[in-house]
Design a protein around this nucleic acid. Sequence first.
RNA 1: CGGGGCAUGGCGCAGUCUGGUAGCGCAUCUGCUUUGGGAGCAGAGGGUCGGCGGUUCGAAUCCGUCUGCCCCGACCA
Length: 571
Amino acid sequence: MRLSRLPLNTLKEVPADAEVVSHQLMLRAGLIRKLAAGLFTWMPLGLKVLRKVEAIVREEMDRAGAFELLMPAVQPAELWRESGRWDVYGDLLLRIRDRHDREFCFGPTHEEVITDIARRELKSYRQLPVSYYQIQTKFRDEIRPRFGVMRAREFLMKDAYSFHLDQASLEATYQRMAEAYARIFTRLGLRFRAVEADSGEIGGARSQEFHVLAESGEDAIAWCEHDDFAANVELAPALPPPGPRPAPTAELTRVATPGARSIDEVSELLGVPPSRCLKTLLVQASDGGCVALVLRGDHELNPLKAERLPQVAAPLALATAEQVQAATGCEPGFLGPVGLQLPLIADHAAAAGADFVCGANEVDAHYTGFNWGRDAPEPETADLRNIVAGDPSPLGGGPVSIARGIEVGHIFQLGDKYSRALQATVLDRDGREVPMIMGCYGIGVSRIVAAAIEQNHDEQGIIWPEPMCPLEVMLVVLNPKKSESVTAAAERLYEDLSRAGIEVLMDDRDARPGVKFADADLVGLPHRLTLGQRGLDAGVVEYRERRSGAEEQVPIDAVVDFIRQRLERTA
RNA sequence: CGGGGCAUGGCGCAGUCUGGUAGCGCAUCUGCUUUGGGAGCAGAGGGUCGGCGGUUCGAAUCCGUCUGCCCCGACCA
């Protein structure tokens, strides 16, 4: 590919509305262009990357025994009504009508369609297990598309679905998929981690997420380096502190705390660390009233854990200021367990300490020296908080660390949720009709591209992991217009490399060297060759590795072999 | 959805408060010089200021309305 022919418009300036590096670099390097919110065109170089990711995903899915098919992007509403999701999926679902006023949606996922396929095609347990997959454009009408291709509305996804007679068979395939996923992300050259996860909207039992580790990740994941524990913070259990609760040493004392509503303000005012404070949150109860949830000041409420409590309404919602006033006679900011006439659940850690600071249920007042059992009844306790760095691993291996990750894959054991709803049954050995057991397995193909850049870039631009580089070698030709011998040598080199099956992007533009070097760094091909008059006269071209910046003079006749070796070495 | 902000050449922005008929940098085109890390000089093209309506002698600037885009959003109890 010749840069003199490819209209590649790189941007020197950072586009105003791109906040994360991957988005900025993809725009600057001309990989994508935005059409509208959450909608992007993949430009030639960007598309090459996408295709390479696809190819690896495809190979590994084939190897895992799944069969590729391609389902329609547009799906009839009836199918979604059958599964019950037409009404529950909400605004994320892009609904459309055809000329006959029939309702459709642009598929955000394909459980309904594949289950419909399965119920038509699969009749006997003898056909099971079977797995299908597709690589397809999905549309989810995200509230707030952002970060470019990372959270776009239209995106490319690989989704796979497996069908089984029983749970044991599902688990075997699930395991196989988990292994395929690990191979995919390893082959792509990404640092990633598989974590236990919440199954969310899709439903079902077990699920695992695959995260590419990156500072800008939207998810927090907890993991332990001494055992196998790794889970999304949403789901990671926070163990109760060991040992007995310390004995009270302080008397319950009311102190004036004018205007100090937040833990930080109270902690600052009284000179007490947040971990010695209690925060009392009122949330909507399942019976229509309110429930008080008590956490240590330095801990955060975990909504998923709270929601799971029978007393708490799902989805979790904080009580309104009016409800707080009605239930306590007090304003938010000064609530506490003392004399509170509401059901109360304390987080294990909040229940395990002594001599706390807490709100006095009176505006501008707190208590110090609060102790459970003495100043308020012993609370019901539960795991309510997010795990934090340093907490013990639930598997007992030691303290956990918290890392940030970008979710690029998610696998679920669905069970019979969809097969039951859509009556996708097979006959078992005994001739009985039973719903199939399903698994589903997604990979965000387009998101992987952004995630890879988040993880692999520097000040100058992108540094492609070799398995997903748009092309392998950037051949920078210096001042081609000035020297016919340079042009001729470049053409020869380009031919030789191409014939050897090496993907070359030749920068034969009539541009200044500085421009070419800057673009080469920005676009980030892993290997760069520079051919100029000076080198040519000495019979060498200059090689530079994008990632390390290491340079080497290579005799011009040895270049093809040299590059071939480089590619093999990193393959 | 709630709150905030922005829409001015391809991109990034100034001009708007205090109406007088649009400007800067980058990019693009031409010429000369230059040529190993985003060149210099000279010249050129390109916008009617998101749409619609209003006020006014006159609107990018004021008013209304619509549209699009961006940012933030339980963790405060």
